[in-house]
Design a protein around this nucleic acid. Structure first.
Length: 421
DNA sequence: TCTGGGGTCCTAGGACCC
DNA sequence: TCTGGGGTCCTAGGACCC
C-alpha cells in the first residue's frame, strides 16, 4: 500500500505562511525571470488565473484584482520542502521524495498498526502544526492509484484532504468520475489519442486491454493500465538514483546580442554544472552548450543550436568543463541574433576520473585537481563569500529578473522575521 | 518589451560489426 | 544477375513529470 502526500499550492503557500497579512488574498508565484505563472493559491485559482500563462499578458488583470505576485524564491521553497520531508520520514519508515512538494510513502508497516485514513489525518495535522503548510494525502495499492486518490483529496474538500482507495469498489467509483487526462503519466497528446479511441475516463482506461494499449502506445502506458487495476508495477524508490545528466540553463533578463555577455553566461552555467557534478561525486565525459533565440518573436528568424564535445578522460574540474563549454559556444555562436536563453549540459558520467586510453593517446593528468576543486567548493559553501572564474563576469548584466522576490526567511539571518509582542 | 528549469524514459533509425 | 540475418551502440526526438 502506498500513500502520496503533497503540499497544496506549495510555492504560493510558502509565501503566505510568512505573510499572515495576505490571508484571504489571491497570491501567485512566477517562474524564473518573472516569466509565467507557476503557482496560485486557492483564492487566485477561484479567480480563474490559469497556470503557465505569461505574466506580461496577465499583468493589468492582476492589478485590477489586486493579485499579490512573487518571483520564485527557491532558497525558501527548498528549505520548506526539507522540513516537510523530515516530518514524513519521522512518521513512516520508507519515503520516496518524488518532487519538491510530493513524497510517496510505503505503508506496509503502518497498515498493521493503524487505520490508514487516520494515519493520513495525522500526517496532515503534524505538517500543518510544524510548518504551517497543508498537505493532501492519497492512499492506494499502487503509486498510480495513490496519485489518483490524492487528486481526489484536493478536488473534493469534503474528503477532509485524505482519500483511501484500499477497496476496489471505491477505486472504480472514483475512476468513473475522473478524466483519463488526470491520470498520472497521461499528458495532453496521449489524452487526445485515447479520447479519439473512445477512452474518456480513468475507468475506461483501466478496463482497456493491456496488449491493445501496448500495441498502440508503449510499455509505459501499459504499466499505467495495470497500475490502475491494482497491479503494482512501480516500486518505491527510497534511494535517489544517480543522475544521468546535469543541465544548467537560464533565460536572460534582457535579450543578449553581445558575444562577451553570452560567453560569461556560458562560463557561469558551466561552473554551476561542474559544482553540481562534484556534489553528485561524479565525473563526466560529455559536455555540450546550447543557445537559442525566442521561439515567440515575430519578424525575427529563429536560431537555436547545440554543440557537444567528448573528452578523452572523465573530469569534474571546473576548468575543463568551462573550457569545453566555451569551445562549444564558439562553434554555434552567430552574430546578429537577440538570444533569449543559453545553457550547458553534462552527460556520460563515471564514478572516477580514469578512462581507458588509446595506444597513441597523449594525456597529461592535471595535478591537484581534486584538492583545488574541494577548496573552491569549500569556500563557496562556507557562507562567508564566493570566488569564481573571471570568465563568469562581474556585472552579469544578462542575469534573470526577480523583481518581486520575498526574503529568505528561513536561510538568511538578516531576513529572519521579527515578531512584536 | 515581456513566454521557466530540470529531469526521466522509450522508440526509431543509422552506423557498424561479424 | 544475384545482395542475409542478427546483433550492439549511439543519438535525436517525442512523450511525460513537477
Amino acid at each position: 500500500m502506498f500513500a502520496l502526500a503533497d503540499v497544496n499550492s506549495f510555492y504560493a503557500s510558502c509565501e503566505t505562511v510568512f505573510r499572515p497579512d495576505l490571508k484571504g488574498r489571491p497570491v501567485v508565484v512566477l517562474s524564473n525571470n518573472d516569466g509565467c505563472v507557476i503557482a496560485r493559491n486557492a483564492e487566485a485559482k477561484s479567480l480563474g488565473v490559469p497556470m503557465g500563462t505569461p505574466w506580461f499578458k496577465m499583468r493589468s488583470e492582476f492589478e485590477r484584482h489586486k493579485i499579490v505576485t512573487f518571483s520564485s524564491n527557491y532558497a525558501l521553497y527548498a528549505d520548506m520542502s526539507a522540513r516537510v520531508m523530515t516530518i514524513l520520514e519521522e512518521m513512516s519508515p520508507c519515503v520516496e521524495i518524488y518532487s519538491i512538494d510530493e513524497a510517496f510513502i510505503d505503508l506496509h508497516g503502518v497498515s498493521h498498526c493503524q487505520n490508514l485514513e487516520t494515519f493520513g489525518q495525522e500526517v496532515r495535522a503534524k505538517v500543518l502544526q510544524w510548518t504551517g503548510l497543508t498537505v493532501g494525502v492519497g492512499i492506494g495499492p499502487t503509486k498510480t492509484l495513490a496519485k489518483l486518490a490524492n487528486h481526489a483529496a484536493k478536488k473534493w474538500p469534503q474528503t477532509g484532504g485524505v482519500v483511501d482507495l484500499s477497496i476496489m469498489a471505491r477505486q472504480r467509483k472514483l475512476m468513473n468520475l475522473v478524466d483519463v487526462g488526470d491520470v498520472w503519466g497521461i499528458g495532453r497528446r496521449i489524452s487526445k489519442k485515447l479520447n479519439d479511441m473512445g477512452i474518456k475516463t480513468a475507468l475506461q482506461l483501466a478496463d482497456a486491454s493491456a496488449p491493445f494499449i501496448r500495441k498502440h502506445f508503449s510499455v509505459v502506458l501499459e504499466r499505467t493500465v495495470r497500475e490502475l487495476r491494482g497491479e503494482s508495477c512501480l516500486a518505491l524508490e527510497e534511494f535517489v538514483p544517480t543522475k544521468q545528466q546535469i543541465i544548467c540553463s537560464r533565460s536572460f533578463g534582457d535579450r543578449v546580442s553581445d558575444y562577451e555577455q553570452m560567453r560569461e553566461a556560458i562560463c557561469s552555467h558551466a561552473a554551476r554544472a561542474a559544482e553540481k557534478l562534484r556534489g553528485e561525486h561524479q565525473y563526466c565525459r560529455h559536455i555540450s552548450a546550447f543557445v537559442k533565440t525566442s521561439p515567440f518573436a515575430v519578424n525575427e528568424a529563429y536560431y537555436g543550436n547545440t554543440a557537444g564535445t567528448k573528452l578523452q578522460t572523465p573530469t569534474q574540474d571546473s576548468r575543463d568543463i568551462v573550457a569545453a563549454a566555451t569551445k562549444c559556444l564558439d562553434t554555434i555562436w552567430r552574430e546578429g541574433h537577440r538570444f533569449q536563453k543559453c545553457g550547458v549540459m553534462l552527460g556520460d558520467f563515471y564514478s572516477q576520473g580514469v578512462a581507458q586510453l588509446g595506444l597513441f593517446d597523449e594525456y597529461q593528468p592535471r595535478s591537484n585537481s581534486e584538492q583545488l576543486m574541494a577548496v573552491l567548493d569549500g569556500i563557496n559553501h562556507s557562507g562567508k563569500g564566493r570566488i569564481w572564474f573571471a570568465g563568469q563576469g562581474i556585472q552579469k548584466s544578462w542575469e534573470m529578473k526577480r523583481q518581486m522576490l520575498s526574503p529568505a526567511y528561513t536561510t538568511r539571518f538578516s531576513d529572519l522575521l521579527r515578531a512584536k509582542l
